[in-house]
Design a protein around this nucleic acid. Sequence first.
RNA 1: CGGGGAGUAGCGCAGCUUGGUUAGCGCACAGCGUUUGGGACGCUGGGGUCGAAGGUUCAAAUCCUUUCUCCCCGACCA
Length: 592
Amino acid sequence: MRLSKLFFQSLRDNPADAEVASHQLLLRAGLIRQVTSGIFEFLPLGMRVRQKVEQILREEMNAVDGQEMIMPVVQPAELWQQSGRWYQIGDDLMRMQDRSGRDMCLAMTHEEVIADLVSHSVNSYKQLPVVMYQIQTKFRDELRARGGLLRVREFTMKDAYSFHADFEDLDRYYPRMYEAYFRVFRRAGLDVVAIESDNGMMGGTMAHEFMAISEVGEDTLVLCRNCNYRANRQVATFRKTVVHPGARLPLESVHTPDCATIEDLAKYLDIAEDQTAKAIFLVATMVRSDTVEDVFVFCMIRGDMTLNETKLINAINAASLHPASEAEIRAVGAEPGYGSPVDVDLSHSLLVVDDLVAQSPNLVAGANKVNFHYKNLNYGRDYDGGLVADIVSAETGHSCENCGGELYSLRGVEVGNTFKLGTKYSETMDAYYSDNQGSSHPIVMASYGIGVGRLIACVVEQYHDENGIIWPLSVAPYAVHLISLATAKQTDVQTKAECLYEELKREGLEILYDDRADRAGVKFNDADLIGIPLQLTIGNRGLSQGKVELKVRRTGERHMLNADEVPVALAPFLQAEENLIQDLLARDIPQA
RNA sequence: CGGGGAGUAGCGCAGCUUGGUUAGCGCACAGCGUUUGGGACGCUGGGGUCGAAGGUUCAAAUCCUUUCUCCCCGACCA
């Protein structure tokens, strides 16, 4: 492709509203443009990267028996009502009506439609297992799009769905997809970590997330330094130990002036924060079959820990949570900042006590009176009932539940996930098959997603420097960036550049040919910005000695190649770029 | 939705506090000339409903009200 003809313009300055590196570089290198919040265009250069990624996805999905198909973006409400998600999912689901007033929505994902398809098409165990996938647009009306392609509203996802006669068959298949996922990410140059995750709105029995480790990530991973425990902080567990065991002491009320925070309280009473308990007040929205109800939730957790809202949502089976207002807190007889479950009216509320608080004797907690706390608060004596569950987050420094090793945390971007859905959708969408005895069973289902744009953003996050992007060869828009420095008078250089362009194209190489009339500096800077792995410069200086100059974008190394044997001379450098990916692929795949 | 910030040419910004000619600058863009191996220089030129609506005023980019959009931080996910 001639750069002079390419629909392309680089930006010298970073657009003011782009903060993360991948967003800035993808914009500046002319790969994408934002149309409105969270909705992007992929320009020709960006489209080529996308096609590279999609090709990898196709090859790897086909390799695990996936069959490509395509499903609609606009879907009837009925299917989502049938699965129940029409009611469970909030405003993320973009709803609308067609001209006759029929409720419709934009697909956030395609479980309903494919389960519906399978319910009509699969009748016998002989048709199972079957795996289908698509590379298709999804729309999620996110609260807040951010970070360029990292978090958008309209995006392209590779979503695959597998259907099995029973869980054993799914368990046999699932590891194949898990490994295929590692191959996809590694072929694109990304090193990822697979972790246990929450099932969220997907439901089902088990889920993994594939995380690209990055400071710009929105997720926190909890990992063990000793064993291979890895989980999203939303679900990560840890070993909880009672740090101050002992016999129960009598409850007493103490005056604690100006101790609205745990830190102040511990300091004032000269105790450790792990000897305190704190109350957290939330309102949960509970969605039952056809009712929606707000319930006040009174949580007790140890003072040095933080509430984990995902765990809480799962423990009480709520649809969503939001902080309670002061009025709502006082309505049950509690005092904000000095709350405890003693002598409050919880008849219309839900008490949830973290299991560690339930086990720990003699904690200090609020006395529901400004400037007063209780000492020696004991669950089962001073208050009881409610639900006892793990509702706090694992943090750096906690102990691994499996081995006792030290936990630490990293930030990551979720580039893919896999869900063992079980029979949730097959039952609601009526997807049953007959076994060899003629009896009917729900089909066992799983779904597997990878965000194409997010994957690209993660590649750029991982592969860039201060001058621009440094594409891995496997996803680079072109393999070689040919830069002609010919001036109007240097017709010999011009001619040689044209010949070289044609020759390299004949060799089957993907070439971006900078034939523009700009000065050298402009071209070099654009080349570094775009980030094609190999830059081939042809100018009067080298050509007068029969040479062209090769620069490896990744390392900055320069080599003089004989102008007459460029394709041959180029081969080892292309191979070296290829080898980087092969090295990544050769690594062991960590077990799920 | 809560908190913070910003909307002036394709991009980056100044002007606004203290209203006053024809709204400026750099980059980008077009033409001509000189240049030509790491973002050249000169001359000329095109491009703006100053986010929108309403108001105050002799006069509004500037003051007031309303509204829309975008970005960043917190509750969601590929």
